[in-house]
């Protein structure tokens, strides 16, 4: 067992966990934040993507102890970073119907936000599709997801660095 402490969506949290606890299980079962999903157990589907110190990672492939000391942003905290009810990427997914069952959506949105941050110059369809390599959706055929990400990227262009930190 180890003590862990980290900042999750701007809030300092700490706990005592088994060393084998995955970050996603710490978020879901210890903190009760079930927005981050487990879709596959084989590190392939990307439903569990969160941002660790500003970068997209698969929270099913990182131990909570590895993440101790870091800043984590999950889907629950995303809108607050844009100081709005919905983050522009969330709004674009709604506008363009970028989901069907919705299970992969939290991971898709966290991956998309990271993708847009890394491409402040803007995105094209080919890049978006290549960058979605680590996120699997079994409903949509990706078409509307790609459309939503392109629309959000267009909207956010010019905001060179998207703020990752939540105002305390």
């Amino acid at each position: 067992m180890s003590d862990v402490s980290m900042v999750v969506n701007g809030r300092k949290v700490s706990g005592h966990v088994e060393d084998r606890t995955l970050l996603v299980h710490y978020l879901r079962e210890h903190l009760g934040m079930t927005g981050t999903h487990v879709g596959c157990d084989t590190s392939q589907c990307g439903a569990c993507v969160v941002h660790m110190d500003g970068k997209a990672v698969k929270s099913c492939s990182v131990l909570a102890v590895q993440a101790s000391g870091s800043e984590i942003l999950t889907i629950e905290g995303l809108a607050a970073t844009a100081d709005a009810d919905l983050h522009p990427v969330q709004a674009a997914f709604r506008e363009h119907h970028g989901l069907q069952c919705g299970f992969c959506t939290p991971g898709m949105i966290m991956a998309a936000t990271d993708m847009i941050r890394r491409h402040p110059e803007g995105l094209d369809e080919k890049t978006v599709r290549a960058e979605l390599e680590g996120n699997i959706c079994r409903c949509t055929g990706y078409h509307n997801i790609v459309k939503a990400i392109l629309a959000a990227s267009e909207k956010m262009k010019g905001m060179a660095e998207n703020k990752e930190t939540v105002a305390a």
Binding site: G46, V49, A56, A111, D114, E133, G134
Partner: peptide, 9 residues
């Protein structure tokens, strides 16, 4: 290599 999330780690 892998995907963007894997490449971050």
């Amino acid at each position: 290599i892998g995907d963007p999330h894997v490449r971050h780690m």
